[in-house]
Amino acid sequence: MLRWFARRLLLAIPVVWGVVTISFFMMHLAPGDPARTALGEKASNASVAALRHQWGLDQSMPLQYLNYLKQLVHGDLGTSVYYHAPITSLMAQRLPVTIILVVLSAILTMLISVPLASRSATHPNGIAAVAVRLFNAVVQGAPTFFIGAMLILFLGVRIAIFPAGGYPADIGGRAWALVLPALTIALGTVPIMVRGLRAAMIESYGSEYVAFARSKGLPERPIRYGYVLRNAGISGVSILGIQVGALASGALVIEQVFAIPGMGSMLMTGILNRDYALVQACTLVFGLLVVVVYLGTDLAYARLDPRARLS
């Protein structure tokens, strides 16, 4: 177990290095000048040159890359030129918000998907199953920002239960403000989850162990929870694990719509303003997040499925 864990961690290093390197070169090779963007179009060329020098942008790209790696190895993410602040302190404010948002939307995804999937698995031709299919089609077809705008309109303005976007200062208000964005992101993943779970459950219902359980006279409820869901859950976990990347990128768009100050809105600002260090740091953190989640998914596999060995 420990050896497995250590090996997986070692394997994560080249992945992270790859993410860091690709984001470094993509940002630096993209046209656009951070110094000009920061100083505005009226600033003199001399001012722009002075700032480029101050930020080390007048050095050769390989040198800048080496300096960046050196900095990174020392645990220094650098300074955001847009926010005029060290990136670690910006992360400390923003990362928890996005993680809470992603976790909340993962929970909501499960809370919505499991009942929908099991209902349409037990009654594949019922009205409910048709309704679920329709719901899936609509939700998957509509872009998330549109769903977000509609949720704001109906639950934020018409029936004003939730705030119409924004992020209040108090904890309770914040938790409340995160519900709609989390729901919006979750709705993007629900159709995929429902479809996967439903298929796995139907397959499980047709299996011999379910036939055996029925023949020994077990009632439907324990069969559903103890046998069918337990087995279908394995595919559910893998779908959720893969979808975390999608949840995180969903957060990127949805944070803008709901004015939630998380990583997504910071990454967008960073890209538009060519804040190299900030974009690289955000990509690195998103990369790490995905690596960690995949690790967690594998651990969950082992927990759910005794056949899977951690070796």
């Binding site: 705008a149 704001i152 309109l153 934020g156 303005v157 004003a160 119409a164 976007g165 924004g166 803008q256 719509v257 709901f258 004015a259 809105s265 967008m268």
Partner: peptide, 13 residues
Amino acid sequence: VPDSNTRATQLAS
């Protein structure tokens, strides 16, 4: 509030 639509609904409420 980056989204102009959200700003408008916030004003309305």
